[in-house]
Nucleic acid binder design. Structure first.
Length: 425
DNA sequence: TAATGCGCACCCC
DNA sequence: GGGGTGCGCATTA
């Protein structure tokens, strides 16, 4: 079965569920896909995860339970402001209020942040992110403490699938101890999606942590990620009670399955931080993951080692390309100061990247086709630094999916890194 | 019995 | 007031 097929099925299913006013949750989606197409829940779950990562589907925590949205249909509700902060403000405000009113996390709907398609910045990214979950606080605690799984209304039929997802995620999502989300307020400008999401509560950011603090948003991103499915299993009890209170509860974000309990039970302090951090909306778990994977120990973004081009400036450092070193250091767990030095070099080098360097970089990053577009558009390091989201999404005439990934995972990261260095100077 | 339809309440803007 | 969401119940297959 092709992925596109699944994409279609899943999106159709979500749309269908929505149209009949049923919550598009994992259970229903799996059930409907199986009924309609005979696809196994496990597979559906896996595909759904992919779609979430692709941001084709948004996973949101709405009223205490996970829902899935068709990203293409989630329109920004009212975000008009251009800057991220503004965009986030609403969500942040909402969640803040809700949190304040009850210890639960609540989040309105995360869909709220949904993808924006046109605005330059806010857009999509952020939101797409989808996952809204937010925190792990109480619910997480409840979950782990009560040890109850959320019975699927229809009878757990698909719990297994959900569980599977968890397992899968747990495996694929390292608890990234050192990784973190890059500076939230990206240099890329206000409104860079993912950041936005994570920042929605900028004002509530863990006090001691700077927006760009590596520690900010680390575990939770992962946590959420890995617990997405578990979220589906919330126990009815608490869930109901919470809902009864008419408060949208934000899901607890827990970390990997094995860590879930530990985190929810042990790290109360951490949870507090986490919850305030993610308390609301869409947390691009996927993006977070991606970024985390790229972030260095210090939380600064790390990038791939661009393939040194023979004529490029980078070639000079081919053997000790800053990228390479940084990457290696990451791999080796090297947290030394030289990482920052290396990054500095990297950013400096960015200005020296030639069109070929840029193309090589993206090619090496797994976007060979898109690399051609960069080359065609003669994007060199300087141009890359000036690129905005819309430029990447629409200016290169490349497919939206890869474009989003390229922008979020690479362009933004590179820009951020560069500007951070610049600021430091 | 599962799937579907939909009134209604809630929330946010 | 409008729009999105989804619970809960009635209806249908």
């Amino acid at each position: 079965m092709s992925e596109s097929k699944y994409r279609e099925w899943i999106l159709d299913t979500i749309d269908s569920l929505r149209s009949r006013k049923a919550r598009p949750d994992l259970d229903r989606i799996c059930r409907m896909v199986r009924r309609r197409h005979g696809s196994e829940p496990d597979r559906t779950c896996a595909e759904l995860e992919k779609l979430i990562q692709e941001q084709t589907v948004l996973k949101v925590n709405y009223k205490g339970s996970i829902s899935y949205r068709n990203a293409a249909k989630v329109q920004r509700r009212s975000r008009k402001k251009d800057d991220v902060s503004a965009a986030l403000t609403a969500a942040a405000r909402r969640s803040a209020v809700e949190e304040a009113s009850h210890s639960d996390l609540s989040n309105g709907d995360s869909a709220l942040g949904a993808a924006e398609q046109d605005d330059d910045e806010l857009e999509g990214d952020p939101i797409m992110a989808m996952d809204t979950d937010s925190n792990a606080d109480e619910e997480g605690a409840d979950e782990s403490q009560d040890g109850q799984d959320r019975p699927s209304p229809s009878g757990h039929t698909y719990e297994d699938a959900a569980v599977h997802c968890v397992a899968v995620r747990a495996v694929s999502a390292p608890s990234s101890p050192s990784g973190t989300r890059p500076a939230l307020n990206s240099v890329a400008g206000p409104g860079t999606g993912l950041d936005c999401v994570s920042f929605q509560k900028a004002g509530e950011r863990p006090s001691s942590l700077p927006p760009s603090s590596p520690r900010a948003l680390t575990n939770n991103d992962w946590a959420y990620d890995s617990t997405v499915c578990p979220a589906e299993h919330q126990h009815p009890g608490t869930q109901k009670e919470k809902e009864a209170a008419t408060k949208p509860a934000v899901q607890p974000v827990t970390s990997s399955p094995s860590a879930v309990k530990n985190n929810t039970k042990k790290e109360d302090g951490a949870k507090v931080e986490d919850s305030s951090r993610l308390s609301d909306q869409l947390v691009p778990d996927y993006a977070a993951r991606v970024e985390e994977s790229k972030n260095g120990p210090d939380g600064r973004p790390q990038t791939l080692s661009p393939p040194a081009d023979n004529n490029s400036p980078m070639k000079k450092n081919s053997d000790e390309s800053p990228f390479k070193k940084a990457e290696e250091s990451l791999v080796n767990g090297d947290n030394g100061d030289d990482v920052s030095v290396k990054k500095e070099k990297m950013s400096q080098n960015l200005l020296q990247w030639s069109v070929a360097d840029v193309a090589s970089y993206f090619s090496a990053a797994g976007f060979p086709e898109q690399a051609v577009a960069f080359r065609t558009q003669e994007i060199d390091g300087k141009s890359l630094l000036l690129m905005q989201r819309s430029d990447v999404l629409t200016g290169l005439s490349i497919r939206l999916g890869p474009a989003l990934k390229i922008y979020e995972r690479h362009v933004k990261v590179l820009q951020r890194t560069h500007f951070l260095e610049y600021e430091d100077l």
